[in-house]
Computed example of a mutant assay.
Amino acid sequence: MRIRECREEDVAVLDEHMPSPGAASGHASRFLRHREGVSTLLVAWRDDGRPVGSCEVLWEGCQAPEVRAVHPECSEISGLGLWPEALRSQCVGTALIDAAEQLVLRRGRSSVGVGVEKNNPRTQDLYKSLGYRPSTPYLDCGSYEDSAGLVHRVADACTFMVKDLAPVPSGEEPAVRGT
């Protein structure tokens, strides 16, 4: 498996192999943010050229006012997804998180966060095992358009979890596991 930044030609492959629930253009909108420099979209690829996971580093951090008040300089790892779901618990997600953390370090940031739904203890436990600590409760509000064109509004109770990152010694590149 290798992890690299998304390229424009990858978007159609992501749409084909990694469904984006509720949005036909989910990968395209994430890639647009990536191209604009607002985020970095990472994709994990199998040796046969199929994508198996992705995540986005949002450089401006979580947009929820409760989180921004406490962590105004904290970038956010968002939209971590694996496909097929059978890949869960096989270190693909951990490798994507590690690659995202290394990007954040290279940008000179000292912390990174992630929003986790309160009713998802398995994911909370994963992030805790990776050094994240629960910080701020918030409501993650958004909307999506389904294939019939109907817009659905959602609000999920979440906890923003934060990890302090160790600075990389001068002259060294951070190691990226799983790439």
Score class of each variant (00 low, 15 high):
Gly131Cys: 10
Ser129Tyr: 01
Val52Arg: 06
Ser89Cys: 06
Gly81Ile: 12
Arg133Ala: 14
Arg153Tyr: 15
Val114His: 00
Ile97Arg: 01
Gln90Cys: 08
Arg109Asn: 14
Gly81Arg: 08
Asn120Phe: 03
Asn119Cys: 12
Val112Leu: 14
Asp47Tyr: 05
Cys158Ala: 02
Gln90Val: 00
Cys158Val: 07
Glu117Leu: 09
Leu139Ile: 09
Ala99Asn: 04
Thr94Ile: 03
Gly115Leu: 08
Arg88Ile: 00
Ser78Ile: 05
Asp125Ala: 13
Ala155Leu: 06
Gly113Arg: 01
Ile77Glu: 03
Phe160Asp: 01
Leu130Thr: 12
Gly108Asp: 12
Ser78Cys: 12
Asn119Ile: 02
Cys91Gly: 08
Arg68Val: 13
Thr123Tyr: 01
Pro121Lys: 06
Arg133Ile: 05
Val112Lys: 02
Ala64Arg: 09
His71Tyr: 14
Leu130Val: 10
Gln124Arg: 15
Gly53Lys: 00
Asp48Arg: 04
Ala155Glu: 13
Val104Asp: 05
Arg88Ala: 04
Val151Pro: 02
Asn119Trp: 09
Ser111Cys: 14
Ser54Arg: 08
Asp156Leu: 05
Glu56Val: 07
Arg68Asp: 09
Pro134Gly: 08
Ser78Val: 15
Tyr144Gln: 04
Leu87Val: 07
Arg122Pro: 00
Val116Ile: 15
Ser143Trp: 09
Leu96Glu: 01
Ala86Cys: 12
Gly142Met: 06
Val67Thr: 12
Val162Ala: 02
Glu145Asn: 02
Glu145Cys: 11
Gln90Pro: 01
Gln90Tyr: 05
Ser129Gln: 00
Gln124Ile: 05
Val67Cys: 03
Gln63Tyr: 11
Pro65Lys: 11
Ala64Gly: 11
Asp140Val: 01
Leu103Arg: 07
Leu80Asp: 02
Arg153Glu: 12
Gly131His: 10
Ser110Val: 07
Gln63Met: 14
Gln102Pro: 11
Ala148Asp: 14
Val151Met: 10
Val162Asp: 04
Val52Tyr: 00
Pro51His: 09
Ser143Phe: 05
Cys55Pro: 02
Ile97His: 00
Ser75Ala: 15
Ile77Trp: 04
Ala64Met: 10
Ala157Trp: 04
Leu105Lys: 14
Ser147Lys: 07
Arg68Tyr: 06
Glu56Asp: 11
Asp48Val: 01
Cys141Ser: 10
His71Ser: 06
Pro65Ala: 09
Pro72Gly: 12
Gly113Cys: 04
Val92Glu: 13
Val70Arg: 11
Leu80Val: 15
Cys91Met: 07
Glu56Met: 07
Arg109His: 15
Leu80Gly: 03
Gly81Gln: 11
Gln63Lys: 12
Val112Tyr: 04
Ser111Phe: 08
Leu150Asp: 12
Val57Gln: 06
Asp47Gly: 11
Val104Ser: 03
Phe160Tyr: 15
Gln63Trp: 14
Gly81Met: 14
Leu126Arg: 06
Val162Arg: 03
Glu76Val: 13
Leu150Ile: 14
Val67His: 08
Asp98Arg: 03
Ala148Gln: 11
